[in-house]
Computed example of a mutant assay.
Amino acid sequence: MPRPSASHNGHRQRLRRRFKQASLDSFQDYEILELLLTFSVPRKDTKAAAKDLLRRHKGLAKVLDADESELLKTAGIGPRSALLLSLVKQACAAYLRSRLHRRDIVESPQAAIDYCRMALAGKTHEVILALFVDTRNRVIADKILFEGTLDQSAVYPRRIIEEALSLHASGFLLVHNHPSGNPSPSPEDGRLTQSLLEAAQTLDIRFLDHLIVARGGYHSFREAGFFGKK
């Protein structure tokens, strides 16, 4: 089996030294992928594959959002590399999730937004995620409750309320994605929010907010005044 050339080894070592000295701040997107791929491709130059990934998927975020089957269509990307790239995003989501749990999401709403955007990024269909909290607004559980088609999700408020009761949660925050990339709420989103407000008030469960996350940002029904005064 051929051994890696001295020039390839030297380039890999330079990439790793740069990372140790200045993290990824000075790296271009293709260099980030190139560095990652050195851990799954031991004997070849990874620059061409890194650039091809960016060209095919139109950006670093979409590379990390891609399914393994899509990644394998790029020359130089084998099963180990596809698995590694898929793992990066999931590890990031797990990191944000671990920071979120047992944290007051009313005091630190950005932590919830960051986690939810990462967890739902790249989904081609709508996904409904709920964060359940205790009396101090600390997250005690997060669950995906519904998954729908690209433009619709069958969401039943009773199911969400029942889940909160089964967890002995004091309240919940509802999050869903807009795969279109536009976080603006639809009339259906508004009707769902109103139904949940009424159901939660009936059972004295706090409905903290309904967030819509997308590539273009996020929409908070509470910040928009839908919930009335805080």
Score class of each variant (00 low, 15 high):
L173I: 01
I160F: 01
S69D: 15
T124P: 00
H125I: 08
L131V: 02
L100A: 04
V127K: 01
A49I: 06
R80M: 10
T38G: 03
A94H: 11
L87R: 10
D151C: 05
I144T: 10
A93F: 02
P179Q: 08
D52V: 00
T124H: 15
A66S: 15
T38W: 03
R97Y: 15
A119T: 02
K58I: 03
A94K: 11
L145Q: 09
R159E: 14
E70S: 13
H168W: 02
V106A: 12
D52N: 14
R103V: 11
L53I: 05
K47T: 11
L120Q: 11
R43L: 10
L84Y: 08
F172E: 01
E68S: 14
K89Q: 14
G181R: 11
T135L: 10
R97G: 06
D142E: 12
P109N: 06
S69F: 07
D65R: 12
A121P: 07
L96I: 01
A141R: 12
A50M: 04
E70M: 09
V106M: 11
G148R: 06
A66T: 12
T135W: 05
C92I: 12
I105H: 06
A154V: 11
M118I: 09
K58M: 07
L83P: 00
V139L: 00
G78T: 00
I140L: 08
K58G: 15
T149M: 03
L54G: 03
S166V: 00
D52I: 00
Q110E: 15
L84T: 05
G122F: 10
A50D: 03
P179V: 03
E107N: 10
R103W: 00
A82T: 09
T74P: 05
V63N: 05
L150E: 15
G171C: 05
D45W: 08
D151K: 14
A154C: 01
I77E: 00
R159Y: 03
V41S: 13
L165F: 02
V88L: 08
P79A: 14
L174K: 07
K143H: 07
L54I: 09
Q110I: 06
A61V: 12
R102Y: 12
S108C: 04
L72K: 03
C116T: 14
L129Y: 10
R43Y: 15
M118Q: 12
V139H: 02
E107C: 05
L37S: 03
V175H: 08
I161E: 02
P157W: 03
T38D: 01
R159S: 13
H125D: 09
D65W: 13
L145G: 08
V41H: 06
I140N: 01
R99H: 09
V155H: 01
A50H: 04
P179C: 05
L167H: 02
V175S: 06
D45M: 07
A93I: 13
I113C: 10
G59Q: 11
V106Q: 09
A111L: 13
L150S: 13
L174W: 02
P79F: 00
P157Q: 06
V127C: 09
N182P: 06
F39W: 04
R97F: 14
S69A: 15
I105T: 05
L165V: 11
L60R: 09
R99G: 08
K89P: 02
L60A: 08
A164E: 00
L167R: 07
E68V: 02
H168P: 00
L72A: 06
Y115V: 01
L83E: 12
A164N: 01
R99L: 07
K51C: 04
Q152D: 05
